[in-house]
């Protein structure tokens, strides 16, 4: 297993977050979602699409979505890329810095399962592998939605956010498979 360096001082949680209030918080999130864009080593294809979503053409502010510059302010992380080994420590810290409830939208084939870099020496293989590391580091993620595509389409990103908040149903079910090498 990869050792994850937290790299910084531990956070101080001033009030214990009431997990039984999670549903109430999700109700509030339906009207206001602040997103933080986290590139974990993507080719920038998905990142261009994320930026596209934030332009006046798609205008996600009409859904109460706003881009923020710090994970401390964010409700949702837009995660792109297959999570390169170099970025793991920083990615874990960014996710950990988010106040709960933590939501993750794994974007693109890379974010969903590593894409063509699902098992290289330099990558982890997307969010599912990262999830295990986050669990080991004691970082809880409350909801995850996978949005495939290479690159992911802007409409799909918006749909993914709606699915994440429980406003819409997912369009397809997925079954995770393991590739056999050799």
């Amino acid at each position: 297993m990869l050792a994850v360096s937290d790299g910084g001082k531990p956070d101080l949680t001033m009030s214990e977050f009431a997990l039984n209030k999670l549903e109430e918080v999700f109700t509030k999130l339906k009207r206001s979602v602040w997103v933080f864009h986290l590139n974990t080593g993507s080719c920038n294809g998905c990142d261009i699409e994320v930026l596209d979503v934030l332009t006046p053409y798609f205008d996600v502010e009409r859904f109460g979505i706003k881009l923020v510059g710090s994970p401390r302010h964010a409700d949702l992380i837009l995660l792109t890329g297959p999570v390169t080994i170099k970025t793991i420590g920083k990615v874990v810290r960014a996710v950990k810095a988010m106040p709960r409830p933590r939501l993750v939208l794994a974007l693109g084939s890379c974010g969903v399962g590593g894409g063509i870099w699902f098992n290289t020496y330099a990558t982890l293989g997307g969010y599912p592998q990262l999830e295990k590391i986050l669990k080991d580091a004691g970082v809880e993620v409350d909801r995850v939605v996978y949005v495939p595509g290479c690159p992911v389409r802007p409409e799909a990103i918006i749909y993914g956010v709606a699915v994440l908040l429980g406003l819409l149903q997912p369009k397809s079910k997925h079954r995770r498979v393991s590739a056999v090498e050799g």
Binding site: P10, D11, L12, T13, M14, F17, K28, A97, P99, P101
Partner: peptide, 8 residues
């Protein structure tokens, strides 16, 4: 209603 987190 979000969690209150501030660094040490």
């Amino acid at each position: 209603v979000k969690e209150l987190k501030i660094p040490l």
